[in-house]
Design a protein around this nucleic acid. Structure first.
Length: 144
DNA sequence: ACCCTGACCTATC
DNA sequence: AGATAGGCCAGGG
């Protein structure tokens, strides 16, 4: 539970953004951070989800917010000290949605974005620019 | 009340 | 190509 109202608003923004992620799809913490207007704080996004309350009486809770869908940019399901089984639980939830989870050589659970066609929500500026995070292979030169 | 860590990302070397 | 450094700011000890 955040101390300052700003932090609480930030948390709520994170939860709301996470709720917008469709089932079977995933996105990154950085993208969530950008969506809520704070691209410089992907860490706090993780902090917010870590502090996601289990109290179902609240507006946002563990069962209401799909905390499993956002992940890291490296596609590796990271875990916290407080919740060592978080990654495994996340993997289980993702697999339940039909998301392919790959196990690394060292036993790391990682999501293969290409397997199910990762398609995150775009920012207004990106949509205007016509940026599609598909297999668009830009060899060189960016306009603008 | 201070200091370090943290479910991270991006730019630079 | 990979590795390192810096930044962000709230939580927890």
């Amino acid at each position: 539970m955040p101390r300052t109202p700003e932090a609480q608003a930030f948390f709520h923004a994170v939860y709301a953004a996470v709720q917008e992620i469709p089932e079977g799809k995933v996105t990154t913490y950085g993208h969530i951070a950008k969506l809520i207007g704070t691209p410089q704080r992907p860490r706090q996004v993780g902090t917010a989800l870590k502090h996601l309350p289990s109290d179902t009486s609240l507006r946002y809770h563990h069962d209401n917010v799909p905390w499993q869908r956002p992940g890291t940019s490296s596609a590796i399901l990271t875990e916290s000290r407080s919740q060592p089984e978080g990654a495994r639980n996340q993997a289980a939830n993702l697999q339940a949605e039909g998301v392919a989870v790959t196990t690394g050589a060292l036993g790391e659970l990682m999501v293969d974005f290409a397997e199910f066609g990762w398609f995150p929500r775009l920012l207004p500026s990106e949509e205007a620019a016509g940026v599609i995070p598909d297999d668009s292979d830009d060899d060189d030169g960016e306009s603008e």
